[in-house]
Design a binder for these strands. Structure first.
Length: 424
DNA sequence: TCTGGGGTCCTAGGACCC
DNA sequence: TCTGGGGTCCTAGGACCC
C-alpha cells in the first residue's frame, strides 16, 4: 500500500471561525487582532484583497480600517480552540493517522488508491468540513512533511487547483517548485532566507538542488534535513501520539502599564494559578518555576528581569507554586518602572504518573495527598461551573491590568447562553 | 496611549567524570 | 621537554514555527 503525507489546514482559520458563527460578517472584510488588541493576526480573503497587511500594529492602521469598512474582532481563543477540536475530530475520522501540528493544521497519513488519484477523497473531505463546520480547508500531498507543506502552499495560491494539490502525482513538479519563493519554504526564516538570496538561491527548487555541504555549513543539520524532505525523503516522522510538553508558559501583556508591586503580584498570581491548572490537565509536575517581567521593548531604557527557583520536590500544587513565584516577583520588582508584560515559565516537567519521592522530604505524604485532593476538587468545580468560580484572593478581583479585548465575539460554541439563534 | 503568546530544536561552551 | 581521549550534563542564546 502506497501512502502519502498530507498537510491539511483551515484557511484564514480565526477569521473563518468568526464567520462560521456569525453570518453578518460572512463574505465581508474582517480582521482578527492578537491578544491585548495588539496587531493583526488573521484576515478574511476580502480584507486581504483590500491590501491589509499581516502583523501590522492595530493603532497604526485603525483609521484605514474604519475608512475601508473593515470589521475588527479581538481574538477569541475559547471559540478557535473549540472549532479546532471539531476539525481535528473530523480529520481523525477520515485519515489513517494524524499529527496535530497547530491550532489550525494537521499532518496526516493517507492510503493512496490503486489509480493513484487522491483528489476524490480530498474533495469529499473539503465538502464535509464546509458542511459540518463552515470551515474551508486546503489539502497538500507529498512524500514527506516538507513536500506536503509545499503542496499545501500551492493548493492555496493556485486558484485553479481549488484547494487541493498533489506534488507526487504531477507531471512538471520542478516547474512548480521553481515558482515557490525561498521565503515560503517551511523551515526557512528571515535569517536563512537572507543568506539564501545572497547565494542566489531564490526558489524551493534551487534549495533542493544546491550541494548539501554548502547547506550544512550555513544551516547545520537542520538544513540537510530540510533538503532531504524536499527531495521526498521523509526525515521528520509523523508523531501521531503527542509527546509530553517540556515547558509550559503563561504570559500576557497588560492592558495598561503596571508600576505597583501589588498589581504585579495580582497578575503573576493569576498566571501561576493558570499554569498550575495546565500542568494538572497535562498530568505533569514541574521541577522549576521562573517569573519574568519587562517594560516596553520598543521604548528606550528597556528593562527585563527573570528569576528561577529549582524545586526540591516536583509539584503541580498551586499552594506550593504560588508563594514561590510571589517571592521571585518581589525579588525582581523594581520601583518607578512601567511594566508592560510579565509571565511564568515551568521547565523540567515530568510525568505526574511516576513521581520520584525525595530522600530529604520534610513534608508528610498524608498532607500532600490531601492537597492533591483539594486541587482536584477546585479544578472540577471550575470545570463544571465556569472558570474562576473558585479563585485565589491574591489574584485580585478587579484586575485592572488585564488585557484589552474590546471587540470580542461571544462564546457561541462553548457557553449555552451564547449559542446563536437562527430566526426563520 | 496603543507593537501577541506559546512552543520546539540545535549549537556552543563550560564543568565535570573516568 | 613534556600535558589524552571520550563522554555526559547543563545553560544560554539563536532560529524557527503557527
Amino acid at each position: 500500500m502506497v501512502q502519502a503525507i498530507a498537510l491539511i489546514d483551515g484557511n484564514n482559520f480565526y477569521a473563518a471561525c468568526e464567520q462560521s458563527i456569525d453570518p453578518s460578517v460572512a463574505k465581508r472584510p474582517l480582521v482578527i487582532l492578537s491578544n491585548n488588541d495588539g496587531c493583526i493576526i488573521a484576515r478574511s480573503p476580502e480584507a486581504r484583497e483590500l491590501g491589509i497587511p499581516m502583523g501590522q500594529p492595530y493603532f497604526r492602521i485603525r483609521n484605514k480600517l474604519e475608512r475601508l469598512g473593515v470589521i475588527v474582532r479581538s481574538s477569541n481563543y475559547a471559540l478557535y480552540g473549540d472549532m479546532s477540536q471539531r476539525l481535528m475530530n473530523l480529520l481523525d475520522e477520515n485519515c489513517e493517522g494524524i499529527e496535530i501540528y497547530s491550532i489550525d493544521e494537521a499532518f496526516a497519513r493517507i492510503n493512496r488508491p490503486s489509480n493513484g488519484d487522491l483528489h476524490p477523497w480530498a474533495r469529499r473531505l473539503r465538502a464535509l468540513s464546509n458542511q459540518s463546520l463552515g470551515l474551508p480547508i486546503s489539502i497538500g500531498f507529498g512524500a514527506s512533511k516538507g513536500q506536503a507543506k509545499l503542496a499545501n502552499h500551492l493548493a492555496k495560491t493556485r486558484a485553479f487547483h481549488a484547494g487541493i494539490f498533489d506534488l507526487i502525482n504531477i507531471q512538471d513538479q520542478d516547474s512548480y517548485l521553481e515558482s515557490i519563493p525561498i521565503e515560503n519554504v517551511w523551515g526557512i526564516g528571515q535569517k536563512s532566507a537572507h543568506w539564501c538570496r545572497l547565494k542566489g538561491i531564490n526558489t524551493a527548487k534551487q534549495l533542493r538542488d544546491i550541494p548539501s555541504n554548502q547547506l550544512k555549513a550555513q544551516l547545520g543539520i537542520v538544513g540537510i534535513r530540510l533538503q532531504q524532505e524536499l527531495l521526498g525523503q521523509a526525515c521528520l516522522p509523523l508523531a501521531t501520539t503527542p509527546s509530553p510538553k517540556q515547558t509550559t508558559c503563561v504570559s500576557r501583556s497588560f492592558g495598561h502599564s503596571v508600576t505597583s508591586l501589588e498589581e504585579l503580584i495580582e497578575a503573576i498570581a493569576t498566571y501561576v494559578v493558570h499554569a498550575s491548572e495546565k500542568l494538572r490537565r497535562q498530568r505533569q509536575l514541574t521541577q522549576s518555576i521562573s517569573v519574568f517581567i519587562r517594560t516596553n521593548p520598543f521604548a528606550p531604557s528597556f528593562y527585563s528581569q527573570e528569576a528561577t527557583t529549582r524545586l526540591g520536590v516536583p509539584t503541580n500544587d498551586t499552594t506550593v507554586l504560588l508563594p514561590t513565584a510571589l517571592a521571585l516577583t518581589r525579588k525582581i520588582f523594581s520601583a518607578h518602572k512601567q511594566f508592560t508584560k510579565a509571565g511564568v515559565i515551568m521547565r523540567h516537567l515530568q510525568s505526574a504518573d511516576y513521581q520520584q519521592q525525595s530522600l530529604l522530604a520534610t513534608y508528610s505524604q498524608e498532607g500532600q495527598y490531601r492537597r492533591d485532593q483539594l486541587m482536584r476538587t477546585i479544578d472540577q468545580i471550575n470545570a463544571s461551573y465556569g472558570k474562576g468560580t473558585i479563585s485565589w484572593a491574591c489574584c485580585g478581583l478587579k484586575q485592572h491590568w488585564n488585557m484589552r479585548r474590546e471587540k470580542i465575539s461571544c462564546a457561541a460554541t462553548t457557553r449555552i447562553m451564547e449559542i446563536p439563534i437562527v430566526k426563520a
